[in-house]
Nucleic acid binder design. Structure first.
Lengths: 113, 113
DNA sequence: GAGTAGTATCGACATCTGTCAATATCAGAG
DNA sequence: CTCTGATATTGACAGATGTCGATACTACTC
């Protein structure tokens, strides 16, 4: 089976001043994917917690308690944020640590500048 | 029946640097309402079109054609954006004109700064 | 007044989304 | 290898959301 090439930066052909000129439906769809990732109260809480933590990182075990939701639900939200490029995931022993990607957060802000 | 007082600015006890410290669920809910308003491809298109138009305003009749959706659907999206404070509505004769509220758009960006 | 054009609301429907319990996967300890 | 704790995935379900057709409302014209 062929390996897939890394396409990490394909996420970011976007964002800055996106609203300055009329958007095509396709471009709007892409932007909406990123915005939907942050347009959820639980995910906003998770982002704010991670941002306020040491090294902009936190593990699932800490997060579950704070938002008072089941572990699978928290895991789901973290996956959405990671898929959107807002977090990166790293395993350290049994724990999964999630780190903020500040540049990606800045991408969101730049849409509306 | 008593008149209601204008409460236009009650919308904006929010936003700037909201993610800097851990959000309560209530605060996160409020932010999510605003973000959900912009996290839709059609509404992003509408915002971009209005922003690119003369005087930051457009009427429904113009918008319906561009996004290729039914008039009730466009009207619905405009209502969502207006309820979120991103647009203001004004009737001129039979037409309804919607004007961008740049400060409210800046509010969205400021969440992620 | 009646007619007409633009817009808003309503009701219905299919799809998407957040949530959980159950289960599977992963990694370290013994 | 087995056990145990942490995380991810699956399946199911209720509620939210986007869309449309039908209809109601609004304002101008005649």
């Amino acid at each position: 089976m062929p390996r897939l090439l890394p396409v990490v930066d394909s996420i970011s052909a976007c964002c800055a001043g996106a609203l300055a000129s009329p958007l095509s439906r396709n471009d709007a769809d892409e932007l909406a994917v990123l915005l939907k990732a942050v347009a959820d109260p639980v995910r906003l809480q998770l982002l704010s917690i991670i941002r306020g933590a040491e090294g902009n990182e936190a593990c699932v075990c800490d997060l579950t308690d704070v938002v008072a939701l089941s572990q699978p639900t928290v895991s789901h939200h973290l996956k959405v944020l990671t898929d959107a490029g807002l977090l990166t995931r790293e395993r350290r022993g049994s724990w999964a640590w999630f780190t903020l990607v500040p540049a990606r957060l800045a991408d969101v802000a730049s849409i509306f500048d």
